[in-house]
Design a binder for these strands. Structure first.
Length: 580
RNA sequence: GCGCCUGUGGCUCAAUGGAUAAAGCACGAGAUUCCGGAUCUCGGGAUUGGAGGUUCGAAUCCUCUCAGGCGCGCCA
């Protein structure tokens, strides 16, 4: 579709040159809705100013000028796909594609089953995307759920554009949070027995125990000096693995957490290619920092090693603490170095909460100094934080909404409302509702979350789209026996307004996907899909499909809409049930 | 105090500097002899936090200001 746009732009430039008005940043763009044509140009307005700047004012208003330009364009543009060129106040020129061309696009929508949305022309890139990043020994909360939904969708969007994508997950298996959790466990008089008993229970029970231990340890760390120093000592022991008893407890807890996370990923439909652990990359980071002290990139400050971010307009950050342990910063250096050892990517994308945006700028500045080839390929995307309408979420307060709890509550609500729905469909719809609710917002923005109100099953929601898809399948299944009709002509039909609006929406799907991928913005897909589904449902309500004069065309239309919804939902990481 | 981000109907939010600021929820009124009512139609409700400025044109860019969030040396 880009070629049409290019053609219009070129034609406008020629006309302007002919009129002696050069140097116009004139433009052919998509109008906001579908009411101002398929393409529009503001050339009348843009050129009017240049004209008044010149010697003579030949045209009194921008609209006069637009009309003159439009007349020339009608003679110049021979493209049969463009049916009408109209002017509109205060000085726009609108271009309309022909109905036959639009109808022909339906076949395209059906043809591109796998790569619908892919333009096919972008070069095949190798991209590693890191997301989710939960920490063993802590809860998998709705923030992780959001990171996962956004990350998975971005991966699929990039894949739709022909890139090879590797999914990476970075997990904090060492550090103060681990020490705090283990400290709490060690406080239990006969903790070994407790562990053995837990071993027989479900994985959910076991992680719940760890989460509670962390909350207890975190509280004690701040309220009790003795606990604080005990935890600091424990942190050291965990890091250098010097105490066998602690090692065994640590390994157990770590394994439980990781096993649990896998159950969540499987529910959400993510499969990671690479797992990274702080315990491993920390050592690499420590080494990288150590090698760059003499050259002045890092400097000793007391017992710690810091990076003076002020030199680059940021602030100082500690990379190695006074105990000689790498902080998150140094670990991150090691992580990013390791990624490129594992996979020769053209680009490395890191998706995290935006609370660390500032910190990441400092990190990038440091990375740029010690390994510029890695830094130049790395891009950080900070997504908005998920906030509860009721107040701040915190492990210590115990008001953390875990990802699992959210999914289960939505599922329970669905079960109440649709008692006949089977288990598999309940799961698909629940996951769809949750993911859609998270993804329909712009990625950088904070999400105000209300457990009762945020997950909608009607209106602009995941289930609405799934329902619409199921509806298209239902219609098509009723005419399976008369398949030949679908192939009937799509030329010279008399189309109803609802059909035309649908056509004007459908053919924009590929470029919408491209835009969403380019901007790392799943919400662009959400917006498009809801618009499409609304138009289809309106069409469905007003026009008869089966048994109508244009049955063949309408079935084709229905099938195209279904295909696009299914593909679009896939790009959001959401499944489309055939029935619901 | 300094830095980054965000302020759009009651709520949640959309809008590459362009046309009447787009929707959903909630609220009010309607639609089923017919393909799935998780649907559809109509209605009320917004001086885009405030004040200046740039521009033919500003929710969008600039300045100031108010409000909120996050970050600012050994958590991640």
């Amino acid at each position: 579709m880009l070629d049409i746009r290019r053609e219009i732009t070129a034609a406008i430039k020629e006309v302007m040159a002919g009129m002696g008005i050069g140097d116009i940043d004139a433009v052919c763009q998509r109008p906001k809705g579908i009411f101002h044509g398929d393409y529009t140009s503001n050339i009348g307005l843009a050129a009017f100013r240049k004209q008044t700047g010149g010697k003579k004012q030949e045209y009194k208003t921008p609209l006069d000028l637009a009309e003159k330009i439009a007349r020339d364009l009608r003679l110049r543009i021979k493209d049969l796909r463009i049916e009408r060129i109209e002017t509109a106040a205060p000085g726009f020129i609108n271009f309309w594609l022909s109905e036959d061309f639009l109808a022909g696009q339906l076949r395209e929508a059906i043809k591109n089953k796998k790569r619908a949305g892919g333009s096919g022309k972008s070069k095949k890139e190798k991209i590693m995307v890191e997301f989710t990043d939960p920490n063993p020994f802590k809860e998998f909360h709705i923030g992780h759920l959001y990171s996962n939904a956004a990350g998975e969708s971005i991966c699929r969007l990039l894949e739709s554009q022909g890139s090879e994508v590797k999914r990476a997950c970075y997990q904090g298996d060492v550090g103060m949070h681990v020490a705090k959790a283990l400290y709490a466990v060690l406080q239990i008089t006969n903790y070994k027995l407790q562990i053995t008993n837990l071993e027989k229970k479900e994985i959910g029970e076991r992680v719940k125990f760890l989460g509670e231990a962390y909350a207890y340890g975190a509280r004690d760390y701040e309220e009790n000096e003795a606990a604080k120093s005990a935890i600091n000592g424990l942190n050291r022991k965990i890091y250098d693995k010097s105490d066998p008893e602690i090692n065994s407890l640590y390994e157990k807890g770590r394994a439980w957490s990781l096993e649990y996370f896998e159950t969540i990923y499987s529910r959400l439909g993510t499969k990671f290619d690479y797992y990274y652990f702080e315990s491993r990359v920390g050592k690499i980071g420590l080494d990288l920092v150590g090698k760059n002290i003499e050259n002045g990139i890092f400097e000793q400050s007391g017992e710690a090693v810091v990076f003076r971010g002020e030199k680059y307009g940021f602030h100082t950050r500690v990379f190695v603490n006074s105990q000689g342990l790498p902080t998150y910063e140094a670990k991150e250096l090691g992580l990013n170095w390791q990624k490129f050892q594992d996979y020769p990517a053209n680009a490395s994308v890191i998706i995290t909460g935006n609370e660390i945006n500032e910190y990441f700028k400092v990190l990038m500045a440091a990375m740029d100094r010690i390994m510029p080839e890695v830094a130049s390929k790395t891009r950080h995307i900070g997504h908005g934080m998920v906030r509860l309408a009721t107040g701040k979420m915190s492990s210590r307060k115990g008001n953390v909404v875990t990802g699992e709890r959210l999914l289960d509550e939505v599922k329970a609500c669905l079960r109440r409302e649709y008692p006949k729905m089977d288990e598999k469909t309940l799961e698909i719809v629940a996951v769809g509702a949750v993911k859609y609710a998270l993804l329909k917002n712009g990625i950088g923005l904070e999400i105000i979350f209300n457990l009762d109100a945020s997950i909608s099953l009607e209106g602009d929601s995941g289930p609405y789209l799934q329902y619409t898809y199921a509806r298209t399948r239902s219609v098509l299944s009723k005419v399976k026996s008369q398949k030949s009709k679908v192939k009937s002509t799509i030329q010279n039909l008399k189309l109803e307004m609802e059909e035309l609006d649908l056509l004007r929406t459908i053919y924009r799907f590929p470029e919408t996907v491209e835009e969403a991928a380019k901007n790392f913005s799943p919400n662009i897909i959400c917006f498009f899909m809801f618009d499409l589904a609304q138009r289809f449902n309106l069409f469905y309500q007003r026009q008869r499909i089966i048994g109508s004069e244009n049955e063949g065309f309408r079935l084709l239309l229905t099938e195209s809409v279904g295909r696009i919804i299914k593909t679009g939902l896939y790009l959001l990481g959401i499944e489309s049930p055939e029935k619901m």
